[in-house]
Amino acid sequence: MANVEKISVALTPEMVAAVRQVVESGEYASTSEVMREALREWQGRRRHRAEAVAELGRLWDAGLASGEATDGEAAFARIRQALEAQRTSRDA
């Protein structure tokens, strides 16, 4: 790695043991590799969360722009009536 900067981090004994175990098992070549992957995953989660928040904002705006709200109970009552009418006409 041509352009790297060393930093120091403090980990709990359990975290240190987990990092050492995966390096000793050969799953990772070094503790730095473990930390880089952990940071990439952290960055991915943060990016995903930001995208989800942005999507919720777009959906919220679309909902507001869609017009007057409808009472959910009244809407379901209308749907139930329509389904019952269809079933009654089919059975007749």
Rank of each mutant, 00 (worst) to 15 (best):
D61Q: 15
R87N: 01
E33F: 01
R36H: 03
I79E: 10
S66Q: 13
R87M: 04
S32V: 01
L59H: 06
E33S: 03
A75E: 08
S30P: 04
A62F: 01
A69T: 12
E37W: 05
I79C: 05
W60P: 01
R87L: 10
A29M: 08
E68G: 05
G67Q: 04
S66C: 14
A82P: 00
A77T: 08
S32L: 00
D71L: 06
R36N: 02
E84L: 04
Q43M: 11
R58F: 10
L59E: 05
G72Y: 15
R36A: 00
A54C: 06
L59V: 04
A54D: 12
A50F: 02
A38T: 06
L64P: 00
H48A: 14
A38S: 10
W42R: 11
S30R: 01
A82H: 05
E41F: 09
L64R: 11
E73K: 10
E68M: 12
E37A: 06
A74V: 10
A38G: 01
M35T: 00
L56W: 10
M35K: 01
R47A: 15
D71R: 07
E55W: 08
A29S: 12
G57A: 05
A77K: 14
A65W: 02
L83S: 02
L56S: 12
M35H: 03
G63R: 08
Q81D: 13
E55K: 12
G72R: 13
L83W: 07
L83G: 00
R47P: 02
A75W: 09
A54V: 03
G67D: 04
E73P: 00
A74F: 09
I79N: 02
Q81W: 08
A85N: 13
E51G: 00
D61C: 07
R40T: 04
R40N: 07
S32G: 11
W42K: 09
R49G: 03
E37R: 04
A82V: 11
S30F: 15
D71A: 08
Q43N: 11
H48E: 13
G57R: 03
R58C: 05
A74Q: 14
E73Y: 08
A50M: 07
L64S: 00
E51Y: 04
R46H: 08
Q81E: 14
R80V: 05
L39Y: 01
A54N: 09
A52L: 14
R40Q: 08
Q81H: 10
E55N: 05
V53N: 00
Q86N: 06
I79Y: 12
I79S: 03
T70F: 14
Y28L: 03
R45V: 13
G63S: 08
Q86S: 07
E41I: 15
I79M: 11
A75K: 09
A75D: 04
W60I: 06
A85D: 14
Q81G: 07
Q81N: 11
E33V: 02
L59N: 03
H48K: 11
A82E: 07
Q43W: 07
Q43V: 08
S32T: 05
Y28G: 01
G72T: 15
A77H: 07
R46M: 10
L59F: 10
G44Q: 09
F76Y: 13
W42L: 12
V53S: 00
S66L: 12
A69Y: 12
A69W: 13
R80D: 15
A52F: 07
E73Q: 09
R80W: 10
